[in-house]
Design a protein around this nucleic acid. Structure first.
Lengths: 223, 223
DNA sequence: CTCCCAAGGTTGCGGCAGCATTGCGATCTA
DNA sequence: TAGATCGCAATGCTGCCGCAACCTTGGGAG
């Protein structure tokens, strides 16, 4: 793990460097915001420790600059300015945590771990078929960049087919995906939905088609 | 935004509920870990506030249980146990932040914002749709440069929709975002809010519209 | 090749669930 | 106390969906 320490008190910086190094953390140390700006250009840090009162300015001003540059690295502010209002200022200024001096190294380490533990963004599994993208979690369908609205039952059919594209879905499986036990159907309602879904897909040039396997079921395929 | 408060001091809980409600936050309150476990099953909370000394156990033991259940909701520990070692214990126990009692509501709010800010939307903490800009952390809406005031419930609806613009939000999800368990509704109150929100958006030429997907839910879209 | 039948496709219709709107009274706030 | 907000409910409307009638297609038998 690599950490950027922006701190002008030499003694504290040395103590931190020593302590954190023992934890296997790689530390870059600078005393000036100008240098820090340069150092963060490559976005190699896992976390940044930031003092407020620095020779070339207020540390907090560094945060929005960093964020505007698209750097999402977590920032913990370390400072003697530890009044409640100052803490609020720091946190609302974009810091991820705020620790008043003096502090125990052990608490800093705990806060480092807490900040780094944040869950990575869970990537939503989307299904792409032809020109359409289906997000089964959000029940949304987009075609190119524009949303593609569907009635509920047709949406359910499409999602069921898309989840296993190019594979045949038994007619009975499809029915189970669209209807629950209380609303058993006694007609060709499913066929009707398929028909209307086909029309919509064709009108939108979706690049996919619903095929029928006679006597077995249906499948979704690019075309 | 919906928050779970696990706290057995009735006075503090009431004060927090009152203060946070004014910020537009929907709160569920419980005094017992057992209830909390049940309440978190549906994963509808944006953040959890957790006391340590609770009638049925140490609050910290709740965290690993939650994480094992796959719930990644940020947790802020609120407690009188505020020695450095206790803070370390809390943070290493899985808390995302740790705030000792007594504290200023304002600082709690700032820490809430800090925790909620990461990691997903660091680059874009504000949501722009049409002519309006929504800050889900501060629950503020501006249209052009002028603030766009909304009643609390309509604001909650708008924010919930805006957080996932162009995605369908289930009706049940919307209800969960706007109402807590004590204020379950038995009418079409949600529809009424949507209707009034629509009117306001139209009057202000906001450039966005709330669409309905019949039988599924609603979505926010530029127009 | 033709015929036949069953499986699938299409389409109009009517019922009704779900949605939109609005007024009213209660509650809360300034 | 005046005004804003909110839950509630009555009303009207929209369009989905099940249904069924009718059409098309595929493949096997003669």
């Amino acid at each position: 793990m690599r950490l950027l320490l922006i701190e002008d008190e030499k003694e504290l910086a040395d103590a931190l460097t020593a302590a954190l190094s023992k934890q296997g953390i790689v530390i870059d140390h600078t005393m000036r915001l100008a240098d820090a700006h340069e150092l963060t250009r490559q976005n190699i840090y896992d976390v940044i420790l930031l003092d407020r009162r620095l020779p070339d300015g207020e540390g907090l001003t560094f945060i929005p600059k960093l964020r505007r540059a698209g750097v999402a690295t977590p920032i913990i502010v370390l400072t003697a300015l530890n009044e409640p209002m100052e803490r609020i200022e720091g946190l609302d200024g974009g810091a991820d945590d705020y620790l008043g001096k003096p502090f125990l190294i052990a608490e800093l380490l705990a806060r480092l771990r807490a900040v780094l533990r944040r869950p990575a963004n869970i990537v939503q599994p989307c299904i792409a078929v032809g020109r359409i993208v289906i997000d089964p979690l959000h029940l949304s369908v987009t075609i190119g960049a524009t949303p593609f609205d569907l009635p509920r039952r047709e949406l359910l059919v499409l999602v069921a087919l898309a989840k296993r594209k190019d594979k045949t879905i038994l007619r009975s499986t499809l029915e189970a995906a669209v209807y629950n036990y209380e609303e058993e159907i006694q007609s060709n309602a499913l066929d009707a939905h398929i028909s209307r879904l086909r029309k919509r897909l064709a009108d939108a040039s979706a690049g996919v088609a619903v095929h029928n396997i006679r006597g077995v079921g249906y499948l979704l395929r690019e075309e």
